[in-house]
Design a protein around this nucleic acid. Structure first.
Lengths: 332, 332
DNA sequence: TTGAAAGCGCTACCAA
DNA sequence: TTGGTAGCGCTTTCAA
């Protein structure tokens, strides 16, 4: 067994044929006689020949591979969206490659750079936090200029002319707030461990607007992951409130924890609406009412759109909205 | 803006210099005068030149990219291990690509096929369930014959001569069982939603062995994700037990749910030890005692080993053991 | 039916 | 200090 990969050149010299003959035979060209083809295919198999996709991509510019670029995979939203993407790609003749940016602009650009040239035909991307802040979008433009298709989902740049799959975060949380108000809660506070992110700020605005509209004053508790529980506890020991909206998984857990420590009952003392994986929320006691972003569907839709564009070779500038909905359970 | 990416050739003709001069200047070669360098760099920036990594890889046979092949990302163990891998790779001059097999042998092979030739320099892989069952390992051998380095973690094939990062699942769960026995529990049952997987079976054996050794009879409750809660509830309504070991996140949640519904106190009525993300376990009420597999460390170690091999260009056949430990919290 | 040669973008060697 | 050229593995005309 060879200690490095077999090339067309090697096969050619082994068989005493030319490189082009080998290439054609392996691509089942009609130009080559069946006898020769058979001989070549057999030898190729014997030497375990595998075409070098890189060289191939260099020439043709297409690889039947797509890249998924997301900020994280710890986050259940992206993990689940990825699952939706995979389910569509699996049933096509494409393969998916995943890259994780950790919210870093530099990593995002590096990934686009590495993959734009011949490795993948298109991108599904959820824009990293840092890219949103620095507003440097030239890597998307570059990729599109190279004829790559791009579909953005959830984290989207409106000014880039590509397909975008969005959710109505702002509206969803307003409705959740109103829902709480409708059930006679009027001291509703918001807890967030993600207000360093744009998403968090956006959601916070939705809450504040709804509160303001109802003539209620809003309270926003924000801290990082490690501190959120303490911050909430401090607040809860010195202030009254009858409902909480938690913007992320960690904040949601913190609410349950503090309520239990302070002997408060959910939902009778405190109503809770949170963001959390739909796989976990029903397991909490009491079951958590969530704002469901339909991550799986978003992923599925993104993948379908990209595939369609790849087939039609046409890029479109359109936005598809997937409504976030309230999954009403016991906690509110 | 050009409709396709700028190449060295284009820059050369724009500047009236040769391709090699451009190449050298952009690589900051000492052969080129500072004046020319400056001129070239400036123009390159203006035309937004980005080197084609593919062409680069073609030449050198190296791409400074590694592939991570894992069965899933829904599973917090792999998500966290991935995080550990990323943290190491980020600080190197390599980039990581992730592929998800969904436990499918076919997808695993397809990924190796696609990436072995020129796309990546090495692999970090957690072997898919199906590959373990069908025992077809030729894709690993092929990759190694092509000069690729492989590091396996968690899901490992002992007969493949590569670096393997393992955890002592079997021992860990035996110890957990003994721990429970030591604190005077003697009706210990096991609940699993993953006994369709090898990992689950392995852990179950560890439990059974420990029980047998202590002269206690073991009870194994297994069902799929959707049914595990019902199965446990049925059992709990008709049988007494004073401790539970839960093999996965879903089973762990189910135990808390059923205990609450049946008015049983954790840990006084029922002690619980489970498998769950260390990020979530402390948030449960009461905090869950877990068997901690140190997923992050496993990922980190795998990545470090692969990088070391890539640098030394030497493949070794070694096994590194990362002990699973009991993270003792309130539930047991 | 087969082969020679150009070229994809780049680096590296050698010459000027 | 700069440029010409070969070659990485492959496909694709165009000739033979």
């Amino acid at each position: 067994m060879a200690s490095s990969r077999t090339t067309l050149k090697e096969l050619a010299s082994i068989l005493g044929l030319s490189i082009s003959t080998i290439s054609k035979a392996l691509n089942d060209s009609h130009e080559i006689s069946d006898a020769t083809k058979k001989r070549i295919v057999k030898t190729a198999k014997l030497y375990n020949y595998r075409p070098n996709k890189i060289a191939l991509g260099l020439k043709s510019g297409r690889t039947n591979t797509i890249a998924v670029i997301i900020p994280s995979v710890q986050n259940s939203f992206f993990a689940r969206a990825l699952y939706g993407i995979e389910s569509v790609i699996s049933n096509s003749d494409y393969t998916a490659i995943v890259c994780i940016t950790k919210e870093s602009h530099e990593k995002e650009v590096a990934n686009f750079d590495m993959l734009s040239n011949g490795v993948v035909d298109g991108f599904i991307v959820a824009v990293s936090e840092e890219t949103q802040t620095v507003k440097n979008f030239s890597h998307y433009e570059d990729a599109m200029n190279q004829g790559k298709s791009i579909v953005m989902f959830d984290r989207v740049i409106d000014s880039i002319p590509c397909t975008k799959i969005k959710t109505n975060d702002y509206t969803a949380i307003s409705e959740a707030t109103n829902n709480l108000i409708g059930s006679k809660r009027n001291q509703i506070i918001l807890v967030s461990a993600i207000n360093n992110l744009n998403v968090g700020k956006q959601r916070t605005k939705g809450y504040q607007k709804a509160m303001e509209h109802a003539g209620l004053s809003s309270v926003v508790l924000e801290a990082n992951l490690d501190q959120i529980e303490n911050v909430l506890k401090d607040y809860a020991e010195n202030n009254a409130f009858d409902a909480v909206i938690a913007l992320d998984t960690d904040a949601s857990f913190a609410v349950y924890k503090v309520a239990s420590e302070l002997g408060k009952n959910i939902p009778s003392d405190i109503a809770v609406i949170g963001y959390m994986s739909e796989r976990i929320a029903p397991y909490l006691t009491p079951e958590l009412t969530t704002i469901n972003q339909h991550s799986y569907t978003m992923g599925e839709t993104a993948a379908k759109m990209l595939l369609a564009q790849l087939e039609s070779k046409q890029n479109t500038d359109q936005t598809i909205l997937i409504d976030s909905t309230l999954s009403h359970r016991v906690s509110s």
